[in-house]
């Protein structure tokens, strides 16, 4: 898959633009917000699309439930809050009114994990993927690239079901020059034969940087963007593991229950091989900027490089 590298754009800008154009094209597209329009840059949508874009107030449980109710009547709701409140705060509603009810809702959780930065531990969802991965029928997406994000917004609107999409609001590098993605299919960003690095969200850029440094040491790392954490692309992960014989996962999430767990489950059942999970240990978040938190929680490219060498050693 072709890679470009540029400064990209703010994902919240992508979201506001895509919601605007989707709502113009289809009046059944609904945007519900739990009073974070200012933080998301979507404030104009409420006046431009009265009724279709609704700030329900600070009530995530009702927002998800009402979205599920209207979806059964043909509406296609996108609902947003910070990832913490879009998961923990409305988990039972997403489970029962959403999944169990056979509803059709896209839950957007912004600023996952350490990307919550100055909002700190209270606002730092490191467990949202674990929660939603256990819900039957829920699709879980972890995305931090503008082009892929645009695709995911458009594609989920075309599909019927329950989706959880976590994304950072701020500026992120663009590394795709394609729009040919598929939910459920991982993207091999860089081919390699020595070790597999399966990453998602903001950790994909760290994985790419790690692969470049490893190459200077003569190690060919295969980098896979597993943006669909559920249903996970078993075929792609297994094929890569068969080829490299060693796997590292990298995620901006607790190592319990997220991408690392999902990949470990696949490998343990199909291609047992040395593996290591790079992610946040079993602890809470805290305030700080992205660089500080990345160091603090071991989410840097150095952590990935170290893990890659460790699993390669264990191959022998």
């Amino acid at each position: 898959m072709a890679i470009i590298r540029n400064k990209g754009t703010e994902l919240r800008k992508v979201l506001a633009d895509e919601l605007r154009s989707m709502m113009e094209e289809n009046r059944n597209i609904i945007y519900m917000e739990a009073d974070l329009g200012g933080a998301l840059g979507t404030g104009d949508l409420f006046s431009d699309f009265p009724g279709q874009a609704v700030n329900v107030g600070i009530m995530e449980a009702n927002m998800v439930g009402a979205a599920a109710g209207m979806s059964v009547k043909g509406k296609i709701p996108f609902v947003h809050s910070f990832g913490t409140f879009a998961s923990r705060r409305c988990a039972d509603q997403a489970f029962l009114s959403g999944c169990y009810n056979g509803a059709n809702v896209r839950i957007l959780g912004s600023d996952p994990g350490i990307s919550a930065e100055a909002n700190g531990g209270t606002h730092m969802p490191l467990e949202d993927m674990a929660i939603y991965r256990a819900f039957p029928g829920m699709t879980v997406l972890d995305i931090a690239e503008p082009n892929l994000f645009r695709y995911a917004l458009r594609e989920t609107a075309k599909r019927y079901g329950m989706f959880y999409l976590r994304f950072p609001r701020k500026q992120r590098d663009a590394y795709y020059n394609t729009e040919s993605f598929e939910i459920g299919k991982a993207n091999v960003l860089r081919a390699g034969k020595d070790v597999t690095i399966a990453a998602s969200g903001i950790e994909v850029t760290e994985a790419l940087k790690a692969a470049e440094e490893l190459k200077r040491e003569g190690i060919e790392a295969e980098v896979i963007d597993v943006f669909t954490v559920k249903p996970i692309d078993e075929e792609c992960i297994c094929a890569s593991a068969v080829k490299t014989g060693a796997v590292v996962t990298a995620e901006n999430h607790n190592v319990i229950g997220g991408l690392g767990s999902a990949v470990a489950e696949v490998l343990a059942e199909h291609v047992p091989c040395p593996m290591k999970r790079v992610g946040v240990g079993d602890r809470f978040g805290e305030v700080g900027d992205l660089n500080y938190l990345s160091e603090q929680f071991g989410l840097t490219k150095e952590s990935i490089i170290q893990a890659a060498k460790e699993v390669m050693d264990r191959k022998n």
Binding site: G51, Q52, A66, G69, M70, G74, D92
Partner: peptide, 15 residues
């Protein structure tokens, strides 16, 4: 939960 589901359904009808 039924309260929100019903409100959502009624909201869709109104729209």
């Amino acid at each position: 939960q039924g309260a929100s589901l019903a409100a959502g359904a009624a909201f869709a009808d109104k729209l």
